[in-house]
Design a protein around this nucleic acid. Structure first.
Lengths: 232, 232
DNA sequence: CGTCTACTTGACACGCATCAAAATTGGTGG
DNA sequence: CCACCAATTTTGATGCGTGTCAAGTAGACG
Protein backbone atom coordinates (compact mmCIF):
# COMPACT_ATOMS: atom_id res chain seq x y z
CA UNK A 1 0.00 0.00 0.00
CA UNK A 2 1.77 3.13 -1.20
CA UNK A 3 1.44 5.72 1.45
CA UNK A 4 3.48 8.85 1.80
CA UNK A 5 4.76 9.07 5.30
CA UNK A 6 4.39 12.17 7.33
CA UNK A 7 7.64 13.71 8.46
CA UNK A 8 8.18 14.27 12.14
CA UNK A 9 7.36 17.92 11.70
CA UNK A 10 4.13 17.18 9.96
CA UNK A 11 3.14 14.71 12.60
CA UNK A 12 3.72 17.19 15.37
CA UNK A 13 0.61 17.35 17.45
CA UNK A 14 -1.23 20.60 17.83
CA UNK A 15 -1.07 22.54 21.10
CA UNK A 16 -2.37 20.60 24.04
CA UNK A 17 -4.14 23.60 25.35
CA UNK A 18 -6.78 23.98 22.71
CA UNK A 19 -10.14 22.65 23.59
CA UNK A 20 -13.23 22.14 21.61
CA UNK A 21 -15.37 24.44 23.60
CA UNK A 22 -13.12 27.41 23.94
CA UNK A 23 -12.92 29.35 20.69
CA UNK A 24 -9.66 28.73 19.00
CA UNK A 25 -7.54 31.78 18.27
CA UNK A 26 -6.37 30.73 14.85
CA UNK A 27 -7.94 28.90 12.02
CA UNK A 28 -5.99 25.71 12.01
CA UNK A 29 -7.76 23.86 9.29
CA UNK A 30 -5.21 22.73 6.77
CA UNK A 31 -4.87 20.81 3.62
CA UNK A 32 -3.26 17.48 4.08
CA UNK A 33 -1.35 15.45 1.66
CA UNK A 34 -2.04 14.04 -1.68
CA UNK A 35 -3.56 10.65 -2.05
CA UNK A 36 -3.17 8.27 0.80
CA UNK A 37 -1.38 10.43 3.29
CA UNK A 38 -0.85 8.63 6.55
CA UNK A 39 -2.03 10.85 9.39
CA UNK A 40 -1.01 8.63 12.25
CA UNK A 41 -0.62 5.01 13.10
CA UNK A 42 -2.30 3.12 15.88
CA UNK A 43 -0.95 4.27 19.20
CA UNK A 44 1.03 7.17 17.88
CA UNK A 45 -1.18 10.18 18.08
CA UNK A 46 -3.02 12.15 20.70
CA UNK A 47 -5.06 14.73 18.93
CA UNK A 48 -8.65 14.85 17.89
CA UNK A 49 -9.42 15.96 14.35
CA UNK A 50 -12.41 17.00 12.35
CA UNK A 51 -12.70 16.25 8.67
CA UNK A 52 -13.44 19.53 6.91
CA UNK A 53 -13.31 18.33 3.37
CA UNK A 54 -12.45 15.15 1.55
CA UNK A 55 -12.30 11.67 2.95
CA UNK A 56 -10.41 10.00 5.77
CA UNK A 57 -10.37 6.28 6.55
CA UNK A 58 -9.50 4.40 9.70
CA UNK A 59 -7.94 0.99 9.41
CA UNK A 60 -6.29 -1.91 11.19
CA UNK A 61 -3.70 -4.35 9.95
CA UNK A 62 -3.16 -8.02 10.60
CA UNK A 63 0.26 -9.67 10.64
CA UNK A 64 0.30 -10.81 7.09
CA UNK A 65 -0.90 -7.55 5.61
CA UNK A 66 -4.60 -8.21 5.59
CA UNK A 67 -6.22 -4.84 6.11
CA UNK A 68 -9.62 -3.84 7.43
CA UNK A 69 -10.92 -0.34 6.95
CA UNK A 70 -13.08 0.15 10.00
CA UNK A 71 -14.61 3.49 9.15
CA UNK A 72 -14.93 5.94 6.29
CA UNK A 73 -15.26 9.56 7.35
CA UNK A 74 -16.67 12.43 5.37
CA UNK A 75 -16.88 16.14 6.14
CA UNK A 76 -17.89 16.94 9.69
CA UNK A 77 -16.85 13.72 11.35
CA UNK A 78 -14.39 13.56 14.21
CA UNK A 79 -11.60 11.06 14.60
CA UNK A 80 -8.50 10.42 16.67
CA UNK A 81 -10.19 9.01 19.77
CA UNK A 82 -7.86 7.37 22.23
CA UNK A 83 -8.14 4.54 24.73
CA UNK A 84 -5.63 4.75 27.54
CA UNK A 85 -3.85 7.48 25.68
CA UNK A 86 -3.31 5.40 22.57
CA UNK A 87 -5.03 5.69 19.28
CA UNK A 88 -7.55 3.11 18.34
CA UNK A 89 -6.69 2.77 14.69
CA UNK A 90 -4.59 4.08 11.85
CA UNK A 91 -5.89 7.09 9.97
CA UNK A 92 -5.12 8.16 6.44
CA UNK A 93 -6.58 10.51 3.89
CA UNK A 94 -7.82 9.51 0.49
CA UNK A 95 -7.34 12.17 -2.15
CA UNK A 96 -6.77 15.69 -1.02
CA UNK A 97 -8.39 16.40 2.31
CA UNK A 98 -8.69 19.20 4.78
CA UNK A 99 -8.63 18.31 8.42
CA UNK A 100 -8.86 20.50 11.47
CA UNK A 101 -7.02 19.64 14.68
CA UNK A 102 -9.17 19.99 17.77
CA UNK A 103 -6.61 19.50 20.51
CA UNK A 104 -5.79 16.80 22.97
CA UNK A 105 -8.14 13.88 22.74
CA UNK A 106 -8.09 13.18 26.45
CA UNK A 107 -9.05 16.65 27.54
CA UNK A 108 -12.33 16.54 25.73
CA UNK A 109 -13.62 13.49 27.45
CA UNK A 110 -16.58 15.22 29.07
CA UNK A 111 -17.75 17.29 26.13
CA UNK A 112 -21.32 16.24 25.30
CA UNK A 113 -20.60 16.84 21.62
CA UNK A 114 -17.82 14.26 21.85
CA UNK A 115 -20.13 11.77 23.49
CA UNK A 116 -22.67 12.35 20.75
CA UNK A 117 -20.05 11.80 18.07
CA UNK A 118 -18.85 8.65 19.80
CA UNK A 119 -22.35 7.25 19.94
CA UNK A 120 -22.98 8.07 16.30
CA UNK A 121 -19.72 6.34 15.40
CA UNK A 122 -20.70 3.35 17.47
CA UNK A 123 -23.97 3.26 15.63
CA UNK A 124 -22.29 3.22 12.25
CA UNK A 125 -19.84 0.57 13.42
CA UNK A 126 -22.67 -1.71 14.47
CA UNK A 127 -24.40 -1.39 11.13
CA UNK A 128 -21.10 -2.12 9.46
CA UNK A 129 -20.53 -5.18 11.60
CA UNK A 130 -23.86 -6.51 10.37
CA UNK A 131 -22.75 -5.81 6.84
CA UNK A 132 -19.42 -7.57 7.32
CA UNK A 133 -20.84 -10.59 9.08
CA UNK A 134 -24.12 -11.20 7.38
CA UNK A 135 -24.38 -9.58 3.96
CA UNK A 136 -23.49 -11.03 0.56
CA UNK A 137 -20.97 -9.39 -1.74
CA UNK A 138 -23.68 -7.67 -3.78
CA UNK A 139 -25.39 -6.36 -0.68
CA UNK A 140 -22.10 -5.11 0.66
CA UNK A 141 -21.17 -3.21 -2.46
CA UNK A 142 -24.66 -1.77 -2.84
CA UNK A 143 -24.62 -0.68 0.80
CA UNK A 144 -21.28 0.99 0.31
CA UNK A 145 -22.58 2.92 -2.68
CA UNK A 146 -25.64 4.12 -0.79
CA UNK A 147 -23.48 5.16 2.13
CA UNK A 148 -20.89 6.95 0.02
CA UNK A 149 -23.54 8.66 -2.07
CA UNK A 150 -24.95 10.09 1.13
CA UNK A 151 -21.51 11.17 2.32
CA UNK A 152 -20.15 12.70 -0.83
CA UNK A 153 -23.15 13.65 -2.90
CA UNK A 154 -22.37 16.86 -4.65
CA UNK A 155 -25.08 19.35 -5.55
CA UNK A 156 -26.31 19.12 -2.03
CA UNK A 157 -25.78 22.84 -2.03
CA UNK A 158 -27.90 24.23 -4.83
CA UNK A 159 -31.62 23.74 -4.70
CA UNK A 160 -31.65 21.11 -7.38
CA UNK A 161 -32.66 17.66 -6.15
CA UNK A 162 -29.13 16.48 -6.72
CA UNK A 163 -28.52 14.00 -9.43
CA UNK A 164 -26.97 11.24 -7.45
CA UNK A 165 -23.49 11.70 -8.77
CA UNK A 166 -20.55 11.59 -6.45
CA UNK A 167 -16.82 11.15 -6.28
CA UNK A 168 -15.78 7.73 -5.07
CA UNK A 169 -12.81 8.62 -2.95
CA UNK A 170 -11.99 4.98 -2.36
CA UNK A 171 -10.11 2.79 -4.78
CA UNK A 172 -11.44 -0.68 -5.52
CA UNK A 173 -8.85 -1.99 -3.08
CA UNK A 174 -10.06 0.39 -0.38
CA UNK A 175 -13.63 -0.68 -0.97
CA UNK A 176 -12.54 -4.29 -0.71
CA UNK A 177 -10.75 -3.63 2.58
CA UNK A 178 -13.78 -1.80 3.89
CA UNK A 179 -16.28 -4.48 2.89
CA UNK A 180 -14.24 -7.56 3.64
CA UNK A 181 -13.98 -8.59 -0.02
CA UNK A 182 -11.33 -8.74 -2.73
CA UNK A 183 -10.67 -6.17 -5.44
CA UNK A 184 -11.94 -8.53 -8.09
CA UNK A 185 -15.24 -9.17 -6.37
CA UNK A 186 -15.81 -5.45 -5.85
CA UNK A 187 -15.06 -4.76 -9.48
CA UNK A 188 -17.35 -7.53 -10.66
CA UNK A 189 -20.22 -6.25 -8.51
CA UNK A 190 -19.82 -2.66 -9.65
CA UNK A 191 -19.77 -3.67 -13.29
CA UNK A 192 -22.75 -5.93 -12.86
CA UNK A 193 -24.68 -3.05 -11.26
CA UNK A 194 -23.64 -0.95 -14.22
CA UNK A 195 -24.86 -3.54 -16.74
CA UNK A 196 -28.12 -3.80 -14.85
CA UNK A 197 -28.67 -0.06 -14.92
CA UNK A 198 -28.45 0.54 -11.19
CA UNK A 199 -25.48 2.84 -11.46
CA UNK A 200 -23.21 4.30 -14.08
CA UNK A 201 -19.58 5.30 -14.29
CA UNK A 202 -17.32 6.14 -17.18
CA UNK A 203 -14.41 7.10 -15.00
CA UNK A 204 -13.91 4.47 -12.29
CA UNK A 205 -14.10 7.06 -9.54
CA UNK A 206 -17.10 9.05 -10.74
CA UNK A 207 -20.19 7.22 -9.66
CA UNK A 208 -23.75 8.02 -10.44
CA UNK A 209 -26.77 6.29 -9.01
CA UNK A 210 -29.39 5.72 -11.68
CA UNK A 211 -31.93 3.74 -9.68
CA UNK A 212 -31.77 4.63 -5.98
CA UNK A 213 -34.68 2.41 -5.00
CA UNK A 214 -33.34 -0.74 -6.54
CA UNK A 215 -29.91 0.05 -5.14
CA UNK A 216 -31.40 0.43 -1.67
CA UNK A 217 -33.24 -2.84 -2.10
CA UNK A 218 -30.08 -4.58 -3.23
CA UNK A 219 -28.33 -3.23 -0.17
CA UNK A 220 -30.95 -4.88 2.04
CA UNK A 221 -31.64 -1.76 4.03
CA UNK A 222 -35.34 -1.86 4.73
CA UNK A 223 -35.46 -3.73 8.01
CA UNK A 224 -32.09 -2.64 9.20
CA UNK A 225 -33.35 0.88 9.02
CA UNK A 226 -36.29 0.07 11.23
CA UNK A 227 -33.83 -1.63 13.51
CA UNK A 228 -31.56 1.35 13.56
CA UNK A 229 -32.36 4.79 14.60
CA UNK A 230 -32.76 7.16 11.69
CA UNK A 231 -29.55 7.14 9.77
CA UNK A 232 -27.91 10.52 10.32
CA UNK B 1 -34.37 6.15 38.59
CA UNK B 2 -36.21 5.26 35.45
CA UNK B 3 -38.31 2.18 35.74
CA UNK B 4 -37.58 -0.27 33.01
CA UNK B 5 -40.51 -0.33 30.69
CA UNK B 6 -41.16 -3.95 29.92
CA UNK B 7 -44.56 -4.67 28.50
CA UNK B 8 -45.84 -8.01 27.39
CA UNK B 9 -46.04 -6.66 23.88
CA UNK B 10 -42.40 -5.73 23.77
CA UNK B 11 -41.29 -8.94 25.28
CA UNK B 12 -43.44 -11.00 22.99
CA UNK B 13 -41.14 -10.50 20.00
CA UNK B 14 -37.95 -12.29 20.87
CA UNK B 15 -35.97 -13.70 17.99
CA UNK B 16 -36.03 -17.05 19.64
CA UNK B 17 -38.22 -18.79 22.12
CA UNK B 18 -37.64 -17.70 25.63
CA UNK B 19 -39.46 -17.78 28.87
CA UNK B 20 -39.99 -14.23 29.95
CA UNK B 21 -40.41 -12.76 33.36
CA UNK B 22 -42.95 -10.16 34.17
CA UNK B 23 -41.24 -6.95 35.19
CA UNK B 24 -40.76 -6.20 38.79
CA UNK B 25 -40.76 -2.65 40.15
CA UNK B 26 -37.07 -2.15 39.85
CA UNK B 27 -34.76 -1.07 42.57
CA UNK B 28 -31.06 -1.26 41.91
CA UNK B 29 -29.46 -4.33 40.59
CA UNK B 30 -31.71 -7.20 39.74
CA UNK B 31 -31.75 -10.59 38.25
CA UNK B 32 -33.17 -10.73 34.79
CA UNK B 33 -34.77 -13.61 33.10
CA UNK B 34 -33.69 -17.05 32.27
CA UNK B 35 -31.95 -17.75 29.03
CA UNK B 36 -32.41 -15.30 26.25
CA UNK B 37 -34.48 -12.63 27.89
CA UNK B 38 -35.06 -9.70 25.59
CA UNK B 39 -34.22 -6.48 27.40
CA UNK B 40 -35.21 -4.05 24.68
CA UNK B 41 -35.33 -3.74 20.95
CA UNK B 42 -33.67 -1.19 18.79
CA UNK B 43 -35.26 2.20 19.28
CA UNK B 44 -37.42 1.23 22.21
CA UNK B 45 -35.45 1.97 25.30
CA UNK B 46 -33.90 4.95 27.00
CA UNK B 47 -31.99 3.75 29.96
CA UNK B 48 -28.36 2.95 30.46
CA UNK B 49 -27.46 -0.31 32.15
CA UNK B 50 -24.46 -1.95 33.65
CA UNK B 51 -23.93 -5.68 33.52
CA UNK B 52 -23.34 -6.86 37.07
CA UNK B 53 -23.19 -10.55 36.44
CA UNK B 54 -23.71 -12.88 33.54
CA UNK B 55 -23.70 -12.05 29.88
CA UNK B 56 -25.62 -9.63 27.66
CA UNK B 57 -25.41 -9.45 23.88
CA UNK B 58 -26.34 -6.67 21.49
CA UNK B 59 -27.62 -7.60 18.07
CA UNK B 60 -29.16 -6.41 14.84
CA UNK B 61 -31.50 -8.19 12.48
CA UNK B 62 -31.82 -8.15 8.73
CA UNK B 63 -35.12 -8.59 6.90
CA UNK B 64 -34.86 -12.27 6.31
CA UNK B 65 -33.80 -13.18 9.82
CA UNK B 66 -30.08 -13.01 9.41
CA UNK B 67 -28.72 -11.86 12.74
CA UNK B 68 -25.50 -10.20 13.73
CA UNK B 69 -24.41 -10.05 17.34
CA UNK B 70 -22.48 -6.81 17.46
CA UNK B 71 -21.14 -7.04 20.99
CA UNK B 72 -20.85 -9.46 23.87
CA UNK B 73 -20.84 -7.83 27.28
CA UNK B 74 -19.53 -9.27 30.52
CA UNK B 75 -19.61 -7.94 34.08
CA UNK B 76 -18.84 -4.23 34.34
CA UNK B 77 -19.75 -3.17 30.85
CA UNK B 78 -22.35 -0.53 30.09
CA UNK B 79 -24.99 -0.71 27.41
CA UNK B 80 -28.14 1.05 26.27
CA UNK B 81 -26.52 4.00 24.51
CA UNK B 82 -28.85 6.05 22.37
CA UNK B 83 -28.50 8.10 19.22
CA UNK B 84 -31.15 10.75 18.84
CA UNK B 85 -33.01 9.21 21.72
CA UNK B 86 -33.24 5.80 20.11
CA UNK B 87 -31.38 2.70 20.99
CA UNK B 88 -28.65 1.52 18.76
CA UNK B 89 -29.27 -2.18 18.93
CA UNK B 90 -31.31 -4.92 20.53
CA UNK B 91 -30.13 -6.24 23.88
CA UNK B 92 -30.79 -9.62 25.42
CA UNK B 93 -29.37 -11.66 28.23
CA UNK B 94 -27.87 -15.09 27.86
CA UNK B 95 -28.38 -17.30 30.86
CA UNK B 96 -29.26 -15.69 34.14
CA UNK B 97 -27.89 -12.19 34.39
CA UNK B 98 -27.94 -9.31 36.80
CA UNK B 99 -28.13 -5.85 35.35
CA UNK B 100 -28.20 -2.49 37.06
CA UNK B 101 -30.11 0.47 35.59
CA UNK B 102 -28.10 3.69 35.57
CA UNK B 103 -30.75 6.17 34.53
CA UNK B 104 -31.56 8.10 31.41
CA UNK B 105 -29.01 7.54 28.70
CA UNK B 106 -29.18 11.10 27.44
CA UNK B 107 -28.51 12.70 30.78
CA UNK B 108 -25.15 11.06 31.17
CA UNK B 109 -23.74 12.48 28.00
CA UNK B 110 -21.03 14.51 29.68
CA UNK B 111 -19.87 11.97 32.22
CA UNK B 112 -16.21 11.23 31.49
CA UNK B 113 -16.71 7.64 32.57
CA UNK B 114 -19.34 7.32 29.87
CA UNK B 115 -16.99 8.72 27.27
CA UNK B 116 -14.34 6.26 28.38
CA UNK B 117 -16.76 3.39 28.12
CA UNK B 118 -17.84 4.54 24.68
CA UNK B 119 -14.27 4.70 23.47
CA UNK B 120 -13.49 1.27 24.87
CA UNK B 121 -16.58 -0.09 23.15
CA UNK B 122 -15.53 1.55 19.92
CA UNK B 123 -12.16 -0.05 20.30
CA UNK B 124 -13.64 -3.49 20.69
CA UNK B 125 -15.97 -2.92 17.75
CA UNK B 126 -13.06 -2.04 15.50
CA UNK B 127 -11.15 -5.15 16.45
CA UNK B 128 -14.29 -7.13 15.80
CA UNK B 129 -14.78 -5.53 12.40
CA UNK B 130 -11.29 -6.72 11.50
CA UNK B 131 -12.24 -10.17 12.67
CA UNK B 132 -15.46 -10.19 10.66
CA UNK B 133 -13.96 -8.81 7.49
CA UNK B 134 -10.54 -10.37 7.35
CA UNK B 135 -10.19 -13.47 9.49
CA UNK B 136 -10.76 -17.10 8.55
CA UNK B 137 -13.25 -19.30 10.36
CA UNK B 138 -10.57 -20.87 12.56
CA UNK B 139 -9.14 -17.49 13.48
CA UNK B 140 -12.58 -16.21 14.29
CA UNK B 141 -13.46 -19.07 16.59
CA UNK B 142 -10.07 -18.98 18.29
CA UNK B 143 -10.39 -15.22 18.80
CA UNK B 144 -13.82 -15.69 20.31
CA UNK B 145 -12.49 -18.25 22.76
CA UNK B 146 -9.65 -16.00 23.84
CA UNK B 147 -12.04 -13.10 24.27
CA UNK B 148 -14.62 -15.09 26.20
CA UNK B 149 -12.00 -16.71 28.39
CA UNK B 150 -10.89 -13.25 29.37
CA UNK B 151 -14.46 -12.14 30.04
CA UNK B 152 -15.74 -15.12 31.96
CA UNK B 153 -12.71 -16.81 33.40
CA UNK B 154 -13.65 -18.14 36.77
CA UNK B 155 -11.09 -18.47 39.53
CA UNK B 156 -10.14 -14.90 38.89
CA UNK B 157 -10.92 -14.51 42.55
CA UNK B 158 -8.54 -16.81 44.36
CA UNK B 159 -4.85 -16.21 43.97
CA UNK B 160 -4.30 -19.23 41.80
CA UNK B 161 -3.35 -18.46 38.22
CA UNK B 162 -6.72 -19.76 37.12
CA UNK B 163 -7.01 -22.84 35.06
CA UNK B 164 -8.48 -21.38 31.96
CA UNK B 165 -11.87 -22.86 32.42
CA UNK B 166 -14.95 -20.78 31.78
CA UNK B 167 -18.63 -20.95 31.10
CA UNK B 168 -19.48 -20.33 27.47
CA UNK B 169 -22.63 -18.30 27.83
CA UNK B 170 -23.22 -18.32 24.09
CA UNK B 171 -24.79 -21.19 22.18
CA UNK B 172 -23.15 -22.35 18.96
CA UNK B 173 -25.78 -20.32 17.13
CA UNK B 174 -24.90 -17.21 19.13
CA UNK B 175 -21.23 -17.72 18.39
CA UNK B 176 -22.07 -18.08 14.72
CA UNK B 177 -24.09 -14.87 14.76
CA UNK B 178 -21.28 -13.09 16.54
CA UNK B 179 -18.55 -14.31 14.20
CA UNK B 180 -20.40 -14.19 10.93
CA UNK B 181 -20.37 -17.96 10.47
CA UNK B 182 -22.83 -20.85 10.59
CA UNK B 183 -23.53 -23.16 13.51
CA UNK B 184 -21.94 -26.06 11.69
CA UNK B 185 -18.70 -24.24 11.01
CA UNK B 186 -18.44 -23.11 14.62
CA UNK B 187 -19.04 -26.64 15.85
CA UNK B 188 -16.49 -28.09 13.44
CA UNK B 189 -13.85 -25.58 14.51
CA UNK B 190 -14.43 -26.17 18.20
CA UNK B 191 -14.20 -29.92 17.78
CA UNK B 192 -11.09 -29.63 15.67
CA UNK B 193 -9.47 -27.48 18.37
CA UNK B 194 -10.49 -30.14 20.84
CA UNK B 195 -8.96 -32.94 18.77
CA UNK B 196 -5.79 -30.89 18.40
CA UNK B 197 -5.51 -30.35 22.12
CA UNK B 198 -6.00 -26.59 22.13
CA UNK B 199 -9.12 -26.72 24.24
CA UNK B 200 -11.30 -29.23 25.96
CA UNK B 201 -14.97 -29.54 26.77
CA UNK B 202 -17.12 -32.41 27.91
CA UNK B 203 -20.20 -30.31 28.34
CA UNK B 204 -20.75 -28.07 25.28
CA UNK B 205 -20.89 -24.94 27.42
CA UNK B 206 -17.96 -25.61 29.72
CA UNK B 207 -14.80 -24.64 27.94
CA UNK B 208 -11.27 -25.06 29.07
CA UNK B 209 -8.22 -23.69 27.36
CA UNK B 210 -5.40 -26.23 27.34
CA UNK B 211 -2.86 -24.39 25.26
CA UNK B 212 -3.28 -20.62 25.54
CA UNK B 213 -0.27 -19.78 23.38
CA UNK B 214 -1.29 -21.87 20.43
CA UNK B 215 -4.84 -20.62 20.77
CA UNK B 216 -3.59 -17.03 20.69
CA UNK B 217 -1.49 -17.82 17.65
CA UNK B 218 -4.45 -19.42 15.92
CA UNK B 219 -6.46 -16.31 16.67
CA UNK B 220 -3.88 -14.22 14.85
CA UNK B 221 -3.49 -11.73 17.65
CA UNK B 222 0.18 -10.80 17.63
CA UNK B 223 0.24 -7.85 15.28
CA UNK B 224 -3.25 -6.74 15.99
CA UNK B 225 -2.17 -6.28 19.54
CA UNK B 226 0.67 -4.01 18.51
CA UNK B 227 -1.85 -2.21 16.39
CA UNK B 228 -4.30 -1.89 19.22
CA UNK B 229 -3.80 -0.30 22.49
CA UNK B 230 -3.39 -2.80 25.29
CA UNK B 231 -6.46 -4.96 25.42
CA UNK B 232 -8.41 -3.88 28.50
C1' DC C 1 4.99 6.87 -26.85
C1' DG C 2 6.38 4.06 -23.05
C1' DT C 3 5.66 2.88 -18.36
C1' DC C 4 3.11 2.46 -14.21
C1' DT C 5 -0.85 1.74 -11.61
C1' DA C 6 -5.61 0.87 -11.26
C1' DC C 7 -9.17 -1.58 -13.07
C1' DT C 8 -11.46 -5.34 -15.57
C1' DT C 9 -12.34 -9.97 -17.05
C1' DG C 10 -11.84 -15.00 -17.31
C1' DA C 11 -10.74 -19.74 -15.58
C1' DC C 12 -10.35 -22.36 -11.75
C1' DA C 13 -10.07 -23.77 -6.75
C1' DC C 14 -11.36 -23.94 -2.16
C1' DG C 15 -13.50 -22.52 2.26
C1' DC C 16 -17.49 -22.26 4.13
C1' DA C 17 -22.64 -22.65 3.52
C1' DT C 18 -26.24 -25.74 2.80
C1' DC C 19 -28.79 -29.82 3.34
C1' DA C 20 -29.61 -33.93 5.86
C1' DA C 21 -29.52 -36.87 9.70
C1' DA C 22 -27.72 -38.87 13.84
C1' DA C 23 -26.20 -38.10 18.64
C1' DT C 24 -26.38 -35.56 22.79
C1' DT C 25 -28.37 -32.54 26.13
C1' DG C 26 -32.16 -30.32 28.64
C1' DG C 27 -36.58 -30.08 30.44
C1' DT C 28 -40.97 -32.11 32.05
C1' DG C 29 -43.93 -35.22 34.01
C1' DG C 30 -44.79 -39.77 35.68
C1' DC D 1 -35.21 -42.41 38.92
C1' DC D 2 -36.69 -43.04 34.23
C1' DA D 3 -39.40 -42.08 29.84
C1' DC D 4 -40.24 -38.84 26.45
C1' DC D 5 -39.87 -34.81 23.47
C1' DA D 6 -37.73 -30.57 21.94
C1' DA D 7 -33.67 -28.12 21.26
C1' DT D 8 -28.92 -28.09 20.59
C1' DT D 9 -24.81 -30.05 18.94
C1' DT D 10 -22.24 -32.96 16.03
C1' DT D 11 -21.03 -35.18 11.77
C1' DG D 12 -21.18 -36.23 6.82
C1' DA D 13 -22.02 -35.24 1.79
C1' DT D 14 -22.40 -31.85 -1.56
C1' DG D 15 -22.55 -27.25 -3.85
C1' DC D 16 -21.95 -22.39 -4.37
C1' DG D 17 -19.95 -17.83 -3.67
C1' DT D 18 -16.12 -15.72 -3.38
C1' DG D 19 -11.01 -15.98 -3.36
C1' DT D 20 -6.97 -16.89 -6.18
C1' DC D 21 -4.25 -16.71 -10.16
C1' DA D 22 -3.41 -14.83 -14.55
C1' DA D 23 -3.87 -12.02 -18.49
C1' DG D 24 -5.51 -8.09 -20.73
C1' DT D 25 -7.23 -2.97 -20.93
C1' DA D 26 -7.51 1.77 -19.78
C1' DG D 27 -5.90 6.16 -17.85
C1' DA D 28 -2.31 9.10 -15.84
C1' DC D 29 1.99 11.11 -16.45
C1' DG D 30 6.40 11.63 -17.84
Amino acid sequence: MPETQFTAAQLAVPPRTSSIRSPRPVVRSRIVGENHTLLYEGGRNRSLYRVVDGCVVLSQLLDDGRRQITDVLGPGRLFGFTVDGRNIATAETLSVARIEPLGDADLNADDPAIARELKATLHRMQAHATLLGRKTASEKVASALVELARLFNRAARNGAPARLSFHLHLTRADLADWLGLTVETVSRCLNRFKREGLIDFSHPKTMRVLDPERLDATAGFSRQRANDAARP
